[in-house]
Design a protein around this nucleic acid. Sequence first.
DNA 1: TTGTAGGCGTTATCAC
DNA 2: GTGATAACGCCTACAA
Lengths: 367, 367
Amino acid sequence: MASRTKKDKEIVSSPVSMADLARELGVSMTTISRALSDHHSIGPATKLKVQKLAKKLNYQPNHLAAALRKGKSKLLGVVVPYIEGRFFPSVVHGIETVARKAGYSVVMCQSNEDAAQERHNIDTLLNAQVAGILVSLARTTNDFRHFDKVRRRGIPLVFFDRVMTGDDVNAVVLNDRAGAYQSTRHLLEQGCRRIAHFTGPQHLNIYQTRRQGYLDALQSYSIAPDEELIAYFDMSQEQGAEEMARLLALPNPPDAVFAAGDSSILGALQYLKSQGLRVPEDVALAGFSNEAFTSITEPMLTSVDQRCEEMGQAAVRLFLELVESKGTPFSQRQVVLQPELFVRGSSLHTPATGASPKKKAAVEQHS
Amino acid sequence: MASRTKKDKEIVSSPVSMADLARELGVSMTTISRALSDHHSIGPATKLKVQKLAKKLNYQPNHLAAALRKGKSKLLGVVVPYIEGRFFPSVVHGIETVARKAGYSVVMCQSNEDAAQERHNIDTLLNAQVAGILVSLARTTNDFRHFDKVRRRGIPLVFFDRVMTGDDVNAVVLNDRAGAYQSTRHLLEQGCRRIAHFTGPQHLNIYQTRRQGYLDALQSYSIAPDEELIAYFDMSQEQGAEEMARLLALPNPPDAVFAAGDSSILGALQYLKSQGLRVPEDVALAGFSNEAFTSITEPMLTSVDQRCEEMGQAAVRLFLELVESKGTPFSQRQVVLQPELFVRGSSLHTPATGASPKKKAAVEQHS
DNA sequence: TTGTAGGCGTTATCAC
DNA sequence: GTGATAACGCCTACAA
């Protein structure tokens, strides 16, 4: 009873191809191809007939073959260092929203902060014949040759958040320096004078620039930075607690900590509370990323919002621009998003309730 | 100076193919193909020559063409409803670990709890010519026809956590019923007698079975279930707070809540605290999933761990079994993992510190 | 040990 | 309007 196509011995029916449709209707494959892609040079009658049969036989176009033929696909690849937490999921969500509207599908891979896996991910995506790749670098990536492959193939490459150093890259980043400045400045305005800083590997733009913003703010108050107060580590919750312990043991301990990430400041908060110290009275705290848990802790954690959704959306728009302006190869673009400081209990010496954004909505600027 | 292959006009060099290597060395494509895949029937001399040239010209195999030819790839597709939080990222991590060892690459898509997007994701993965698909259903999926496509193509399909109803499916699930039973039973042992339940759409196995476990536990204490105490909603944090409010307004309010998810119980906790009620003294709370934030709240939240990593690993192993036993088509397998209750402050009438697992490690069982 | 040729499913180019 | 044919890059009988 079932419509039989090719080899009928198999239990799993092999997918029906254009050739099958052509045979069934007694027309050429060309006609089929055109009818399905709604080409103008096909009679409305045949068009309808073809599309009807396609539906009936449940024809599934093999985009892969099309991609092979055209050397192009409608697939967008995303590589992120990890997906836990709120930041990257939100960015990816932003990516999906814009990508879908433009007719692209999105697949993602995580590098687990490992350069080797990142390389492998890039290969995987290239092999899947993606039309473009959006990347946020792994923490351990300091060799960028695997991205040359991408460029050599002429595949648009856009970095976001954690970007490759060098100016010949397309990138969407937060104005990390401004965010860190705002946050540190806020701590200073609250009366803190000995502000410590948690940061990560300095080859990553985000940590380097946030550190710079921290230093900027100190300087604006004519405070000389104290290297002893700057902790370089993996920014994990556990290490955050340990570094907090180390800082408290100093002869002259800090009265505040500004961290370039939220997990580490959570660790610090937990350690402080375990020692019976009060936040923010004894030590004020501020983090970075505005992770979901910053509104759960007691007190809630002050943090810098990274405009995740916008970042994802901007990355796709950048990609789309690159696709369209394929003629002009070396027009590298940078999009800079403006951060937003969320002041919460952990940094307020005059306690307030809830979160209050300190800056207005982000502005995209091309540079 | 640069080795010129085909059209030299382009700035981006078109990727070098086997044909290019063959021409360059004056041998056939067969030789190239075999040399690169380390076939035994190729002389070590030619093999070396080929591989050297491949390196030099930076040859990148087009796995896509290979996949088209062979109808198979080493790509594994994963579809999850969302990636925020800890559960799905951990599962995916488990998947990647085992997949990588077996030589598979992993790409993932999120359905954002939307059936239409899930359908689209399946198409995307099929088009990318994946060797298999691992799925956890979107909350809104109640039509399963898009999975027929997958089966018709003979592509192994494994469900995890949120599985399709019906017994002809390959699936890895938690023993949700046992987890819910343990958790509710624990609340009963703490002296609670009027235990409310937060649950989601009952067409999803996880919510249905957890509800059943809850009822089982009540029955074991000869307590008649009260439908008024069972709240059906989207399990969000916001709704959790609202449902808590509704329950408190009852003439005979509950003294505990067991939720089939963590976000909803977090909402309940926050509402209770906002009303000046004490947890667990006034109302004891227990959730499900053991999300990371359960250890951050005050008090910490009791929850059922879902063995995320194991779940991902088991799903891939199941997939690998299916690949190997391709001959026997209808051998559907189910893997059931044992949950682990983490008792924390939110449910302990005799307060303890930290978390204490109540059950030992999970055991996989084939049924 | 190596080469020849056909085909995977689609689209582009030409001719009718 | 429609059809035949040749690619896209790779794999694999089969032949030599």
